[in-house]
Amino acid sequence: MVHGLSLSVPRGSLFGLVGPNGAGKTTTLSMATGLLRPDGGTARVLGLDVWADPAAAKAVMGVSPDGLRLFEQLSGRELLHYVADLRRMPVGESRARTEELLAVLDLADDANVVVADYSAGMVKKISLAAALIHAPRLLVLDEPFEAVDPVSGQAIRTILRRYVGTGGTVVMSSHVMELVEGLCDRVAVVAGGRVLADDTVGALTAGGSLHQRFLELVGAGEVSGDGLTWLGG
């Protein structure tokens, strides 16, 4: 559930969206990317009204939602080929990019394995590759680092930073505050379907850690001392 939530992401920034479970992060991203029709309000992406022409907006976006249903009966390589073909990319270009993406994301050895047999981290990576293949100007990623091993995680960080360096825009949600603090330029804290804070990472943390600031903003209660006494007793 999301109420009167308003966010704007400047072009060329790496924007982090954080919030407790059930805060409305996935809902917000789904409505902004044309996956979930909102009851009201507008979503504009690079000057395009998402809900006036979803296909045009989706053409300039790369989206990797959480729990995206891929064509999991395809192998990793076939999946990227079909996604590129469905996006009407020239075949030569898409085949070359497929091999590059598989290599960078350490999926080359499993390129012929069916996606249904992939581990959770591998699914995240192939989903990211599918979102990148058409070189979109905006990337929207839901928990892109979840279940991804540290080596691939580093590769993804490098890809995202380089992408933003060349004028691309990234919006990502995450639960890992340290990651958002270290990677993102701007961050928005969402809870209960509302925006609690929206600022640059430096201004928001103001010398402290994002972790601490986040807990203050969402009003996290301490686990009371006398609770769960049976645990470990």
Binding site: G34, A57, K58, A59, V63, R69, F71, Q73, R87, A131
Partner: peptide, 16 residues
């Protein structure tokens, strides 16, 4: 058994 043609699988693609 295999609903491979579920339109939900095409949601992120720019298809009319």
């Amino acid at each position: 058994v295999d609903n491979v043609l579920d339109p939900a699988r095409f949601t992120v693609l720019p298809l009319r």
